[in-house]
Design a protein around this nucleic acid. Structure first.
Lengths: 145, 145
DNA sequence: GAGAATAGTCAGAGACTCTGACCGTATGCA
DNA sequence: TGCATACGGTCAGAGTCTCTGACTATTCTC
């Protein structure tokens, strides 16, 4: 049923949504039942050394106010912490905290499992190709990088 | 900068978001400046004969209440209309109305343009391949179909 | 014809996002 | 050195989107 060609936007959205659903179901089951997709889109961008709020906002393509709102929640829930930026007294660095670090492997495991399912359906060679195509597409569609 | 492999979810999300941004910018410029992404995700699923609310909700993976909320707005803005379903007195069919029909070609043109840009970057053969891979991926990631 | 299922609405709450205004610190330059 | 400007971040308020739960009306099943 319904095999007419869809526009690429929707075609990208459908598997994205499927992945998201799977990850959040697993996180919830593992006890990380607070933690929302919006929070995750910020959390996901935190690098090992920590990031400034404005940096995270820019990467997630939201305003710094929205980023602040989400980081507040993440901080309250113990997923991240804010530390002063030694190089700039105005700024603070958002870093992954203990509970956040504990959630990462859970999420990573589901992502890996889903990617394997997809590879099983597409074939390993084509799964590889999909990743490569999307990575190349990112070159012209990621306003941050 | 930042070429480390990202998870497939994010890799799908980035171009999706880029497409969405482009389409909404063009719609706004063409005078369709009300019309939000959430409304579009419902609107996009309306088929020529019209759809029931619950059908749209299921496709968009939202509750029927949310779908009703969005269709209310679309109706008020003149993008869709509701007509009685001749086969079931409980139901009504949501159909594209005049203003909605006027917006479709504008959106379609942008989608086509963006897809062409992407094809120019990836190469026509690989763009074709990307579409094909995503279509196959839909087979196992679209809970509706 | 009775009971269960379905289509849709109403009410209320919570999450997410935005714009605009503001404070304190840093930077560039005369 | 000092001043204007830019930048990092917060506060306040509003709008949008989503959900859960409860309800009405109609249809389906037996």
């Amino acid at each position: 049923m319904n095999d007419e060609p869809l526009n690429l936007g929707l075609l990208l959205f459908i598997p994205y949504r499927a992945m998201e659903t799977r990850v959040f179901a697993a996180l919830a089951e593992a006890g990380f039942d607070d933690f929302t997709p919006a929070q995750a889109r910020v959390f996901q961008r935190i690098s090992p050394g920590g990031n400034r709020l404005t940096d995270l906002a820019e990467q997630a393509q939201i305003t710094k106010q929205s980023a602040g709102f989400l980081v507040d929640q993440l901080e309250r829930a113990g997923y991240v912490e804010r530390v002063p930026d030694p190089t700039d007294a105005r700024a603070r660095l958002v870093r992954v905290a203990a509970r956040g670090a504990a959630a990462v492997p859970v999420a990573a495991a589901v992502v890996a499992a889903v990617e394997q399912e997809w590879a099983a359906h597409l074939g390993g060679r084509d799964a590889q190709r999909l990743r490569q195509l999307l990575t190349r597409l990112r070159e012209i569609t990621d306003p941050y990088r």
